[in-house]
């Protein structure tokens, strides 16, 4: 046996694993307007290839109520097709780009999720935050109400604000 190091670092994107499960819960535990409760449930990821891959791997085609979950992925915000409906959009980038996405989705019952220090200020409905080295989230419930989306009790219970 040698003196060297033998173990390799597991290169799994740990934050992507956790965020993917949160997004699945956001999809499954919130209540969308009846008008978008038919057909597929569209969950779209912008700017995070690894989060998209994690969602495709573990959650694609799982049922959200009666709707099979469809996962979409785009590299940049400008690639997001605004002529199609997305129930849930996760946007990795913050700042003005996030704000542009929020404005584009403002009149739809799309729940925009961000991971940015000022995510809610830029227009996201749910924003991931770090609390005690853990991933948590904050919610703009008023914005959700305006969109006709009822945030589920389970989701509310674990929100930091």
């Amino acid at each position: 046996m040698g003196q060297g190091t033998t173990s390799g670092l597991d290169e799994t994107d740990t934050r992507a694993v956790t965020k993917a499960n949160f997004l699945f819960h956001f999809a499954a535990s919130n209540e969308w307007p009846a008008s978008v409760k038919e057909g597929e449930f569209h969950l779209t990821v912008v700017g995070s290839e690894r989060l998209h891959a994690e969602l495709v791997d573990k959650y694609a085609m799982k049922m959200i109520g009666a709707q099979p979950l469809r996962i979409h992925g785009y590299e940049r915000p400008e690639e997001l097709p605004l002529d199609a409906f997305h129930h849930l959009v996760y946007c990795e980038v913050g700042g003005s780009e996030l704000k542009r996405v929020a404005l584009a989705l403002a009149e739809t019952p799309t729940v925009l999720v961000s991971d940015s220090p000022d995510g809610l200020e830029q227009g996201a409905v749910i924003n991931f935050v770090a609390t005690g080295n853990r991933i948590r989230y904050e919610i703009n419930t008023a914005d959700a109400v305006k969109k006709g989306v009822l945030i589920g009790n389970k989701i509310m219970a674990w929100a930091v604000k």
Binding site: T6, S7, L9, D10, T12, V17, T18, N21, I155
Partner: peptide, 25 residues
């Protein structure tokens, strides 16, 4: 020291990788 760190970290990741659609909040 390095191997201890890796063992601790990888064990954490191992738990995390078991998260799936059946995992409750």
């Amino acid at each position: 020291l390095y191997n201890l760190a890796i063992t601790l970290y990888n064990h954490g990741v191992r738990q995390l990788k078991r998260i799936n659609h059946e995992t409750s909040m």
